[in-house]
Amino acid sequence: MEAIILQVLNGLDKGSAYALIALGLTLIFGTLGVVNFAHGALFMLGAFCAVTLSRILTLSFETIDPTRTDFLGNPMTVHTPYVEAWFGEAVGGTIIDWAVPLAVIIAIPVMALIGVVMERGLIKHFYKRPHADQILVTFGLAIVIQEIVKAFYGANPIPTPAPEAFIGSFDIGQILGFDPYAIMYPYWRLVYFFFSAVIIAAVFAFLQFTTFGMVVRAGMADRETVGLLGIDIDRRFVIMFAIAAVVAGLAGVMYTPILSPNYHMGMDFLVLSFVVVVVGGMGSLGGAVAAGFLLGILQSFASMSQIIEALPGINQVVIYLVAVVVLLTRPRGLMGRKGVMED
């Protein structure tokens, strides 16, 4: 029982990331009819927003401290971050420590801007082109973004820790009445899960309760009719794209303490997120979220040592196997609707 709960929890954080990326992918599929292979790159860019902010915050100046000497007896140079100099050591230190959550604030405008530029500059011209062209051009874009990031930040993963307050684990088992230390769950993963839940809820609320969202949902159901109503779909497309970019970016920002960002993390997550979207059903937002969590948890179960012993390698392929089975038995995915992407 403990083991099962532990695996479910372990699957949650990966599942949250899948769900957030897949949500954006589905929004773009459903409204714009575009297959965006560069969506994973947005996730990666979000993660690098966090890296950049923490680098900016730790920018420091050098002073020579004559009271201290190194082992050769020379006076030591001390690096003091500007933030600490300006706000005092305590406040400055906290700001640096909280770089990742703070990055959420700057990631929102940055990612929205990237989204708008991407849509206006490139994707817009591909609405009427075949899906193959959309796939190819966004694939090329993904390579370009990834290589630019690599040129600036190098090829190695960059550890970006969570605030100190969230380091350590939470004994969920004890709360649920199991033995102490039976189910330990890192605080940050818990934070990530709740953060994702909030974003997902916000996106759904936005689509459910605003006029804008209503039009978007109508557009996902029947693009042509909405277009005929004379509603300015174009402007809404841009906003949808920006929202999808922000969602993917935030997923990336908050994921950095769990996985040190590297330039190819976008591609790694993208393939899986595509599978998630397909399993959930193209154009189904609920399906994308449900399938994201489902596959995250499934993957975590498949990584249990007992299961790997019985079926070696299953942890590597379980997601793909599920996708194949789902596509063959339920071509529209778990919650897919008729007529989306069926040409």
Partner: peptide
């Protein structure tokens, strides 16, 4: 058994499976 984007993703999934 599928066409279009589904076909592309299925082949991608199989290839990643082989790779893994």
């Amino acid at each position: 058994r599928r066409t279009g984007i589904y076909f592309s993703i299925l082949t991608l999934a199989f290839a990643q499976m082989c790779y893994s």
